[in-house]
Simulated assay, not measured.
Amino acid sequence: MAYQEIGTTIQSVQQSIDHILETTANLPEETIRFKPAEDEWSIMQILSHLAEAIPYWLGEVEIVIAMPGAEWGRGLQDPARLAAVTDTDKLAVEDVMKQVEELKYKVESGLGNLDEETLSKESPHRNFAKFGNKPVSYIVDHFIDEHVSGHYDQIKRNLSKIQ
């Protein structure tokens, strides 16, 4: 994957978070908690997932930078990942929105000082070693930038099923 200026990536993530917050800010709580189908997440679950997942992936970046060659990643059945989307009825919308807002600063803090050399360090995914090593930039681009953007699209799909 080609090197992308980290500032551009940070800006992209922050823009996606801003879009998410703007889109959800004035929604009624019942809309935020609405599940379009049994096998689809509510907007609340998406927000809670982002509040858990992005710090997780920032931590994985830190580990790979500190220990090049260390395995990174997790599976879909990861307990922390599942906990973030379970029992979201107990979570306050305002609190989760604030956590999502804070992601903008966590991303900037966690990625802002990475240079091209650091972003090119490679390590294997713990579940998909058969695909070979991936650079830190892959984690940043795929599991942070594209991840947030993809969930923004998911929120828009959810809303299209209501309106």
Rank of each mutant, 00 (worst) to 15 (best):
A2K: 15
A2D: 14
Q4I: 15
T9R: 04
T9P: 01
T9W: 01
Q11K: 10
Q11N: 14
V13S: 10
Q15N: 12
I17E: 06
D18N: 08
I20Y: 05
L21G: 10
E22M: 07
E22A: 13
N26E: 12
L27P: 08
L27W: 04
P28M: 06
P28S: 13
T31M: 09
T31A: 13
R33D: 04
R33L: 12
K35C: 12
K35W: 08
K35L: 08
A37R: 10
E38Q: 11
D39H: 06
E40P: 00
E40Q: 11
W41Q: 15
M44N: 10
Q45G: 14
L47I: 11
A53D: 15
P55A: 04
P55K: 07
G59K: 12
G59Q: 04
E62G: 15
E62L: 11
V64T: 06
A66K: 07
A66C: 05
A66S: 11
A66R: 04
P68E: 05
A70Y: 00
E71K: 15
W72T: 01
G75F: 03
P79Y: 12
R81Q: 09
L82W: 03
L82S: 04
D89L: 14
K90C: 04
L91F: 12
L91Q: 11
D95N: 06
V96W: 02
K98I: 01
Q99D: 13
V100K: 05
E101G: 05
L103S: 06
K104V: 05
K104N: 09
V107K: 07
V107S: 08
E108K: 08
G110R: 10
L111A: 08
N113I: 05
L114A: 10
T118P: 08
E122W: 02
P124F: 04
F128K: 13
A129H: 03
V136E: 08
Y138V: 07
I139M: 09
V140K: 00
H142T: 09
H142F: 14
F143C: 12
V148R: 11
V148G: 11
S149T: 09
S149Y: 05
H151G: 02
Y152I: 07
D153Q: 11
K156T: 12
R157W: 01
S160C: 03
Q163F: 15
